[in-house]
């Protein structure tokens, strides 16, 4: 059998991670009904072949609940990371091209948001927006754009001064075409990788504020809700209620990280040769 090279292995990692995450998201969506089913004839079962993650005190299948919760987390992450990355792109570019006054205002806002502990700001915004799905998405979106915005601002500033971009102006290339031809090929990889690397943060933060009670409401099958409920039963020896959902949450976050890092390697030709 032919040995696969580094680049092919990276493609496989990237594809595998995306496939797995897609399966969780879609699977969880279809299992949503099943996750609500309570059956007291099977309550508090330890993990067994029929119920891989066991069941809880109301006889709900923890495997199905976990998948549904994760699916919800991923969808929230998708929305929040998307909004956040878009915000970063717009503000970062505006900061770099719209002159000094705009730049100092935007960098001041970036410093302000970065200066306040993430989780605190997140709780405040989520609470102010009435918690729930909307509160979490707005909260995560408004707190996670800063570092990507900074990155994009720096990149655009550097590109603006690049000799080949100045030469393009002298060759009569319009500003729009210069941006499209010369800037987008540099910014797009940064943006895509930044977007994917935002996911794990968004998902973990969603789970943490839900766990603390400032996020999704208790009747929703969210990972944060599962974890906070299981706290009461941990002391009674029901270890599986927290262990498996927690592991899967950590695994999902790690997989997004793998996907982002592999994409970075694929899009930056220099690093693929290493």
């Amino acid at each position: 059998m032919r040995r696969i090279n580094g680049r092919e292995r990276t493609v496989l990692w990237f594809g595998g991670a995306l496939l797995f995450l897609a399966l969780i998201t879609i699977g969880g969506r279809f299992l949503a009904e099943k996750a609500m089913v309570t059956d007291f004839s099977r309550k508090n079962l330890a993990p067994c072949p029929a119920y891989l993650f066991g069941t809880d005190w109301m006889g709900r299948d923890m495997f199905v609940r976990t998948l549904t919760g994760l699916s919800m987390s991923i969808r929230i992450g998708f929305l929040a990371a998307g909004v956040s990355a878009l915000l970063a792109l717009i503000l970062g570019t505006a900061s770099a091209v719209m002159g000094r006054a705009v730049d100092s205002v935007i960098t001041w806002i970036i410093d302000l948001v970065m200066g306040i502990p993430h989780i605190l700001l997140l709780i405040l915004i989520s609470y102010a927006c009435g918690k729930g799905f909307k509160g979490v998405v707005i909260g995560v979106s408004l707190t996670h754009w800063t570092s990507l915005a900074r990155l994009i601002r720096g990149e655009v500033l550097q590109l603006k001064e690049a000799a080949y971009i100045k030469a393009a102006g002298k060759l009569g290339m319009s500003r729009f075409k210069t941006a499209w031809k010369h800037m987008v090929p540099h910014l797009l990889p940064q943006f895509l990788v930044g977007l994917i690397l935002l996911f794990p943060h968004a998902i973990l933060h969603e789970a943490s504020i839900t766990f603390l009670g400032f996020g999704l409401s208790p009747e929703q099958p969210a990972i944060g809700v599962i974890l906070s409920e299981s706290m009461q039963y941990l002391a009674m020896g029901k270890w599986w209620l927290a262990l498996f959902p927690g592991l899967l949450l950590a695994g999902t976050a790690a997989l997004f990280d793998v996907a982002g890092e592999s994409l970075r390697k694929l899009l930056d030709p220099g690093s693929a040769h290493r």
Partner: peptide, 30 residues
């Protein structure tokens, strides 16, 4: 628009976008 005075620089590596093929570099000419 197009500047009738064109400069050729000492260090050509700074004057071409590292992410574009040379075909595109020639296409920038008039």
């Amino acid at each position: 628009g197009y500047c009738p005075v064109q400069m050729i620089w000492q260090h050509p590596e700074h004057l071409v976008n590292p992410r574009l093929r040379m075909r595109e570099v020639l296409a920038e000419g008039d």
